[in-house]
Amino acid sequence: MTSATLAPAPTALKRRRGRDGRLTRTSGLGLGIAMLWFSLLVLIPLAAVVTTAVTGGWSGFWDAVTNEQTAAAIRLTVGTAFLVTLVNIVMGTLIAWVLVRDRFFGQRALEVLIDIPFALPTIVAGLVLLSLYGPDSPLGVDIANTRIAVFLAFLFVTLPFIVRTVQPVLAELDRDAEDAAASLGASRLTTFRRITLPSIAPAIAAGAALSFARGVSEYGSLVLLSGNLPMRTEVTSVRILSSIENDNLPGAAAVATVLLAISFVVIVALDIIQRRVVRRG
């Protein structure tokens, strides 16, 4: 993604011939095969979703999306993903801070804990949360089949994103400016707000975009946990699935298109943020 900016300036004339702009016959063929595969697997199927969504005309699309139950699902999904992203901005930054700046016994274990939500199958993630916050909870907290369950599931699956985008930036950060601010009498909070935060803000934003996108598209962890009650705990993905199961593919495609549009906006935002980060670095 950053290849253009990072490629070193060519030093010898010879290296200009083999690369720099031109595809050789073999690499051209490789690109062709790769594009064919990528199209068959990703591009054509996603195009089919959008095409199917508009086959019923604009009114059909609009009816499917503004259907009361669907609209409630979209509101719940987007609203919860937004709240969870806010929590992640605070907690993710704090966790990254502790991992980089703090030193204590067992820190390595925290590193592993943070990646678990990424690697754990989502259905298992749901079961995992259910075992502590479900009907058999040893804590006596039962939030299964409530909106809190949706919030908790999103919180679990999006945990790694901000931590993992902020952590490397914080580790690379030059601490001289912070030391200077502190020696000039700035409080720790002021130093953080005026010196550290501006440097890690793009990383936080990138992580927040990923975390939001992941929350909006979540499905597996909710199956066992949220009960999928219409109008209350049903998220958009569940809504799409029930349309598929009722053989209402145009309806499913219409709601899926809304999700795709959200992902698309997030990806564009992320691309812009990454470009800004690279330019600064």
Partner: peptide, 12 residues
């Protein structure tokens, strides 16, 4: 693929 819902992947 990272930000598309798995259900949408299946549907597609």
């Amino acid at each position: 693929p990272l930000s598309v819902s798995p259900i949408v992947v299946g549907l597609a």
